[in-house]
Structure formats: C-alpha cells, structure tokens
Design a protein around this nucleic acid. Structure first.
Lengths: 136, 136
DNA sequence: CAGGATCCATTGTGATACTG
DNA sequence: CAGTATCACAATGGATCCTG
C-alpha cells in the first residue's frame, strides 16, 4: 500500500461510500485488488480442492500434491493470504512433528460458487479460445 | 489409495484429454492461463462496461473514460488480448480520423454472467475482508 | 483518435537452502 | 512436516513519446 504522495487528485470524499459498499469502478476501492486476488488460478484451485466434500480439511503437503505445478513458496503465500482474508482456517495439531490442517471458512465456502462458475466457463470455452489463438 | 481427493490421472497422455476438455488441475492445460486472464480486474471492468445495454459499443477513448485508473497501455493491451481470444469484436470506421468501436462477441457476452457473479461477491464481501485485514 | 514503441521501476515467482 | 529466507530472473505496468 503506497502512500498517495503525488495524486490524491480527484474524489474528496465520494470514495467513502464506494469503500463501504464495494465499487469496482472506483479508483480508490480495494475491490479491484480483491478481485485480482480471488481471480487467480491458484486461489481457484485451493478453493476448489478444499470445497470437495471428501476432503474438507487438508494438510499442507496434501494440498501441494493436489495442485500439480504449484511451487512450495506460492502455496505457502496464497494460504497465508487466504487465511488473512478469512477465507481459509488454519488448524495446528500439536504433535511431533507438527501437523497443520486447512479448511474453508463459511466465507471461503461462499466463494466456491462464484469461482466454480468462472472455472467452469474457462474449462468449457478453453478449447475454442485456444484454437482461435493458434490460428491468429 | 492413500491419496484422497486426487483425480484419476492414470492416463498415459493425460494432457491430450485435459487439453480437449479443459482441466484446471492439469499442469499442461492452458485453462490455468486462461483463468488468470479472465479473472483480472481490467477484464472484469471491460466486460461489465460493454455488457451494459445502453453502451453495447464503445470507442477506445470512451472505454478509457469509463474505467478510471486504467492506463492507456493497459487498455490497449487488454483489448487486443480479448479480441484475439474472440471475446471482443473490433470494428473500424474508415473516417478521418479513424474511429474504432468495441463490442462483445457472443462468447464475450457469455462471460458476463460468470464475471458478474464473481464481481458481486467481491463487492459484497470486500468490507468484511478489508476490515479483517486491517485488524490482523 | 487509436494504439504502438520504449524506458524503467516494481513486483511476482521459481529454485534452493535453511529452521523449529 | 510445515514452513521461512534469500537470490536471480521474468513479467507487469505506468509514463512518455511517436505515428498514421
């Protein structure tokens, strides 16, 4: 979050309203940043995996295995972000060695629907789009 | 089978199948890249603006004005990408100076629903998430 | 007007190594 | 096991200038 040193130009206070209600079209509204965060492939995958009824709770290594291609670092980073955002809950079992379990919070679960819709669109139309790209 | 939740990835050439059907969980499947592309704030905004019944077709400068905060370069880049992907149609009016109009293709329109769902989720939950982040 | 080209600062990301 | 730290490099994105 860089401090606005050079350009607090427009908007004297109208952003207050946008901030409160969430307005993608307001420059100052964090909804933009939020959308970029939840719209990523890694978030989509994490939410999708954790939303599977058979695996409501998974350990770090299990998630890693369930998401081929993700790097150690990325998974760690994304999980931390999602935890901070309150979409994922982190449970530590005090054994030796320690075990950590991740599961969706109610808020996280509520994101599952929207993300599924987008993911399914992507999976359904990927072929057509990819083909067009190649020919162009 | 000690790996619960894992998919049956036993095929010899799984990428072929995944490529054809679109599988986010396949490392080689372009669906991942596609999802990252369509999940961005700029794409969400472009699609949303062009989906407005009142403005089915907009010129470059009009789009720019409708999307406060986007840079010249970004808009140009994203429009080109969306055009290549077949989500946006580009119509050039041969006047002096030239006028260029953008509108959604049927494929682009079909993305409007999914994106709206995600955008609305973001706008609705932005407040809670933002508050939690600050306190953490 | 539309948008390409260039420069440059910032950030993202993988690989690797290390710790409790 | 579940991370964190560090490094090197790629990608992003804004600002600015340029052209048909």
């Amino acid at each position: 979050m860089p401090s606005p040193g050079s350009r607090e130009v427009t908007a004297t206070t109208p952003s207050d309203l946008a901030l409160r209600r969430g307005d993608l079209f307001d420059v100052e509204c964090p909804t933009r940043e939020l959308l970029d965060r939840i719209g990523s492939k890694w978030v989509a995958m994490i939410i999708t995996v954790l939303a599977r009824p058979t695996t409501p709770e998974l350990r770090f290594a299990e998630l890693e295995r369930a998401m081929p291609g993700i790097s150690h670092r990325m998974l760690s980073q994304e999980l931390k972000r999602l935890t901070l955002d309150g979409l994922v809950h982190r449970r530590v079992e005090d054994s030796v060695p320690v075990k950590v379990f991740y599961r969706l919070t109610p808020l996280g679960m509520s994101l599952h629907g929207p993300i599924s819709v987008l993911r399914e669109w992507a999976e359904a139309n990927m072929g057509a789009i990819d083909a067009r790209r190649r020919s162009a």
